[in-house]
Simulated assay, not measured.
Amino acid sequence: MNGMDFWMLISRLIVIFYTAFLFVSADRLYTPYAVLFLLLYLSLGIAVCMIRPPAWRRGITLLALALTVWLSVRGHPAFLFLLPPAIFAVLAEYPVHRYMFCLFVFLPFLFIPYGDLPAYTVITLFCLAIFVLAARSNDRLKKYEEQSDSMRSSIEKLTKQLHSSTEYIKQSEYTGKLEERNRLSQAIHDKIGHSMTGALIQMEAAKRMLSSHPEKAADLLQNAITISKEGIEDIRITLKNMKPPAEQMGIHRLRTFIDEFSAKNGLPVPFTYRGDLDRLTQMHWRVIQENVTEALTNTMKYADATQISIDIHVLNKAVKAEVKDNGNGAVRFKKGLGMLGMEERAAVLRGTVIFDGTAGFSVTTLLPIE
């Protein structure tokens, strides 16, 4: 049952009670037939609310209207009061130009006795008000349903695009790995493989000439040693070029962690860095990331902050990593295992950690740079 059916049924019930009262108070001889028709009229109204196929609904409403008109003409005049709900029920099933067809509900004014005209006018206006309010409410509900369906369709489309993007990223990463493996294999084959093969050939030749031409064999061995050294140097250069710098590894890991933390907790986390990051070693980055992680965790637990900022500044003799929030702060605080752990990690590199709770809370890690 939708909103329109509910309010139309309510208007029918009210009019039915009023009509039944008229029969009971004015014409007791006709009361049994009136009760029979009123029950039939109410049953048809309930049936419309329970049936879904539009053709059946329209047929039942037209049947109720036809019976009401027939009984109004051939039966008791009080049945005229049932015409407005029946007409509006038909209009509810034919929504095209429904407000224009509402004029038909005023046609019975030409045939109603003058004494019943005020009551019929009140009933008509009452049903009209309910019909207009129910129609607007139903139209608004349909509009919201269409918007909901549109949003659901958009969400499904975005979800599919997200899955496609995720698969594309995975495929791109896998393709990149394959390309890097192919490049490494080709570099080993072109440079190192040829060098090792040349050295091996000269060592085999030196082995054969060792007894008959020892000086020539020594020259071949020296050439093989030189070629082997060059091959080893090529290996070292190739591996060095493959290994990313500590600065790229450290800043990339830290930035990835900060982005994940911000997205997970819904907090903006501005991240800035200054200075020559190439001077930082893997140990520096490890201590910085673990201390930043611990500081962010403590902020989410205790600070009740709405914003967190992270700043890394490489100075001449040290690096400073600061995590600051705009939370409650604490002038006096007791160092727990997390704070003690941050100090211990910094002490390994002869560094220190400064805690300040005067304006929000900040954790500053200072590490010396050799």
Rank of each mutant, 00 (worst) to 15 (best):
A224S: 11
I227S: 03
G231S: 13
I232E: 06
E233Q: 12
D234A: 10
I237D: 08
L239N: 08
L239Y: 08
K240C: 07
K243E: 13
K243G: 01
P244M: 04
P244Y: 01
P245Q: 07
E247K: 15
E247V: 14
G250I: 09
G250V: 05
L254H: 01
F257L: 11
E260K: 06
S262C: 05
K264F: 10
P268Y: 00
P270W: 00
F271P: 07
D276F: 08
D278T: 15
L280Y: 09
T281G: 10
R286P: 03
I288T: 11
N291S: 12
N291R: 09
N298M: 12
T299G: 12
M300A: 01
M300H: 01
A305P: 05
A305K: 01
Q307C: 12
I308G: 04
I310Q: 01
D311Q: 11
D311N: 13
V314Y: 13
K317D: 12
V319W: 06
V319Y: 09
K320A: 09
E322K: 14
G329S: 06
G329R: 02
A330I: 00
V331I: 15
R332P: 01
F333K: 06
K335T: 08
K335W: 03
K335D: 11
K335V: 08
G336Y: 05
G336S: 06
L337W: 10
G338M: 04
G338E: 03
M339K: 06
M339P: 00
M339T: 10
G341L: 07
M342S: 10
A346V: 05
A347W: 01
V348Q: 12
T352Y: 08
T364A: 13
T365E: 11
T365L: 02
L366M: 14
